[in-house]
Design a protein around this nucleic acid. Sequence first.
DNA 1: GCGATAGTCGTACGTTCGTGCGAATATACG
DNA 2: CGTATATTCGCACGAACGTACGACTATCGC
Lengths: 124, 124
Amino acid sequence: MDKVSHNHPVDAAGVGRAHRAALTAAEAERLGSLLALLSDQVRLRMLFVLVSVEELCVGDLALALDISMDQSSYALRQLRGAGLVQTRRGGRVIYYRLADGFPQQLLEHCLRELLTISDGRERS
Amino acid sequence: MDKVSHNHPVDAAGVGRAHRAALTAAEAERLGSLLALLSDQVRLRMLFVLVSVEELCVGDLALALDISMDQSSYALRQLRGAGLVQTRRGGRVIYYRLADGFPQQLLEHCLRELLTISDGRERS
DNA sequence: GCGATAGTCGTACGTTCGTGCGAATATACG
DNA sequence: CGTATATTCGCACGAACGTACGACTATCGC
């Protein structure tokens, strides 16, 4: 653990306001986890696909996104663990779709906006 | 690299539609990078703070968020590298604020929405 | 100039995460 | 029952990331 070395705030009022405006630890963690989940390219592309295609099996998703079945399976497991997608079994095939009550428009809207934001604003 | 083992798509039409609906590699990468940047709790809390406080120095941000100066400095460097914040020097003190043209309302809106989403939908 | 303070830099460390491989499970078909 | 297919699991590896620590730079006040 690191010490904060300066004894006096430069802007005590500002620190107070900042402290009050800050997210709670729980909020930051929840939101951070969700964003981390969304930050993976494979998972991201899958969600966008599942918004328009409704239902696809692991192998077909792998084909559509040109990734390995392992990648597909792993990504879907993560999304499922977070409750964002759900499964249906049909013989040997397991179909994935967005979970009931998934906020499609909302997420879609937000991500498209963020996509726009990321347009000019990047390095590397 | 992994082979996709099944020779025939289960739902060829679906795969086609999925492929067409998918984000481009570039889009997925840009959006993923942005989301990864936002997925860190420290950076996240900083942005929320800077939306309401306008300008704060490294040490005061550390105080307000109860983190080390190293953490504060590191997080701000990342955000600066991404062009999300900018600096102003005042003597020994370096003030950080959201970058000019930062889409405050948009980002604020999106993140608040995602925060809401993350409310019910989590494990662990 | 000297000492103190704000912030950054270099580096090493520990952790987390996505990947790939081979084996295992589950189901269908003959 | 035996083989083939779809998916998952266990595991190990490597890469990326955030943190802490000490050294370093820059600026202020005396």
